[in-house]
């Protein structure tokens, strides 16, 4: 479990992280979502004691990262920035990490196999592709078999096969009861892996909610209708008490209903309908709405 309490980070006059509080619970993938520059990486680095917070505190299973004995066995992390020596082999990179936290040598081979890097273990990290570097970073995070894992933009630079691998890995780690905290600026990626979302924009916490609730909060599900007689259709819908809105492209958007009901109404009133589509809640819309609001709020409120 990761507990973040009123965490802040100031760089000069910029408040990169502004009094953020949240809890990342075990047993599920928690997505850390926000546009680039929202303060996600800074927050992760403060959780891991790499950056010193201006205010607030962080607890990983009840202790600050610095106080964890053999921290790699308690928390593993993949950070966005490169952390490899180009001239050192993948095996030796993992070996020094393992030795520092008294992790047995056999575990180095294990994580190399897990990350699909067995064949290139002796190769210098400088010759690795971006995808292989990312896999090595993930191997390093898993080295101590830790109950808490943090991944900063893990799918960056991975090929489709690698992306799939990460998704399954994250879900598998959470299913084993671990705390899995994954940052991303891609909401579509989070929609596929995360069960819970923490949304950050401009250093502020915007949402701490399940993926389902988050999507519903942003855009209500509605039925899109195209008809040659939109005016008459509006009247019919209004008579039924259904909220309706005309979209920019002329289509009608009807809330609180289902396509079947629209079909019945059209038949009853002899209306021609060329399209009825159910539009479910979109995470993208929810995200854009939420982050857009925050920009306005900050612009006007300060």
């Amino acid at each position: 479990m990761i507990e973040v309490e009123n965490l802040s980070k100031r760089y000069g006059n910029t408040l990169a992280v502004d009094g953020v509080s949240f809890t990342v619970r075990p047993g599920r993938v928690t997505g850390f979502l926000g546009p680039n520059g929202a303060g996600k990486s800074t927050t992760m680095r403060m959780i891991l004691d790499l950056d010193r917070p201006t205010g607030g505190r962080v607890r990983i299973d009840g202790r600050s990262y610095r106080e964890l004995p053999d921290p790699l066995r308690r928390a593993g992390a993949l950070l966005e920035a490169k952390a490899l020596h180009n001239r050192r082999s993948a095996y030796h990179h993992l070996l020094w990490l393992a030795q520092s936290n008294r992790i047995p040598k056999s575990r180095v081979r294990e994580v190399l196999r897990l990350a699909g890097l067995e064949g290139v273990a002796g190769k210098r990290a400088g010759r690795f592709s971006l995808g292989m570097t990312q896999r090595l970073g993930i191997a390093a995070a898993l080295l101590g078999d830790p109950p808490v894992l943090l991944f900063d933009e893990p799918v960056n630079g991975l090929d489709p096969e690698g992306v799939l691998w990460i998704r399954n890995l994250l879900k598998g780690l959470a299913a084993e009861g671990r705390t899995v905290f994954v940052s991303s600026h891609l909401i579509s990626e989070m929609a596929l892996t995360a069960g819970h979302l923490i949304v950050l924009a401009r250093g502020r916490l915007l949402a701490d909610t399940s993926v389902q609730e988050f999507a519903e909060s942003g855009a209500r599900p509605h039925v899109r209708i195209r008809t040659p007689e939109p005016e008459r259709m509006r009247d019919v819908l209004a008579a039924e008490g259904l909220p309706v809105k005309q979209a920019d492209d002329g289509a009608l958007e009807v809330y609180d209903t289902a396509p079947e009901r629209i079909g019945q109404l059209a038949l009853a009133h002899g209306l021609v309908v060329s399209e009825t589509t159910l539009r479910s809640a979109s995470l993208e819309e929810a995200f854009m709405r939420l982050t857009g609001d925050s920009v306005e709020y900050r612009g006007g409120g300060r």
Binding site: L48, D49, L50, P71, L72, A77, L79, A81, K82, A83, L84, H85, N86, H93, L97, S100, N101, A140
Partner: peptide, 10 residues
């Protein structure tokens, strides 16, 4: 090389 971050995590 940037290994300082990995070192300080360890």
């Amino acid at each position: 090389s940037g290994t300082i971050r990995a070192s300080l995590l360890a």
